[in-house]
Design a binder for these strands. Sequence first.
DNA 1: CCACGGATTGGCT
DNA 2: GCCAATCCGTGGA
Length: 201
Amino acid sequence: MKPQKKLPKKFYTRDVHTVAKELLGKLLVRKIGRKHLTGKIVEVEAYEGSVDEAAHTYGGKTKRNKVMFNEGGFLYVYFTYGMHFCSNVVAGKLNEGNAVLLRAVEPVNGIDQMTINRFKKKNISAVEFNNLTNGPAKICSAFGIARSENGTDLTGKEIFILDSPKLSENKIAASTRIGIKKSVDLPWRYYIKNNSFLSRK
DNA sequence: CCACGGATTGGCT
DNA sequence: GCCAATCCGTGGA
């Protein structure tokens, strides 16, 4: 297998929907000390600040959402429901306020560490394994991503995404987004068909 | 199997 | 004061 390369800045500075679809199948990597936690991205949602009422950036810049106004290539982490963190990949140009929410990944490497991060124990059941990273807050829990990771440069060494061959269109499906109350009809959730780590089918 | 609601903080009005 | 880009346990069918 050819060594995979880290996605460059220019991958992220394109249109948010292109970035969202092309992130499918790529490998999210979190480096903790000498360990690498890796997961294949299988489900994402695009949020487009200028036209999308559900985007955090729709109402303009605030202390909370300012990372999302960066140019593409940064990690936007937000805290929600009083207990969960969710990760987004900022996409597009400076001040667009666009990002891709990472909704589900398939565990690839560092599974022992993910298991401990999420369940505080080493041995887990098959059901727990399937629940390791199949939701936006579950990814953050398993990968140890929280407030201090907000604004991380994805072209750096702590958190980055490795390239992989582009998926053909017929492996990708689109649907409306999950868990939102505004702009509910926009079909901006993209996922790999039939993957068993999707947050929903 | 599915539907419902509680947990619990902080951003914004 | 309201309520969220969620998750999980409970309880009924």
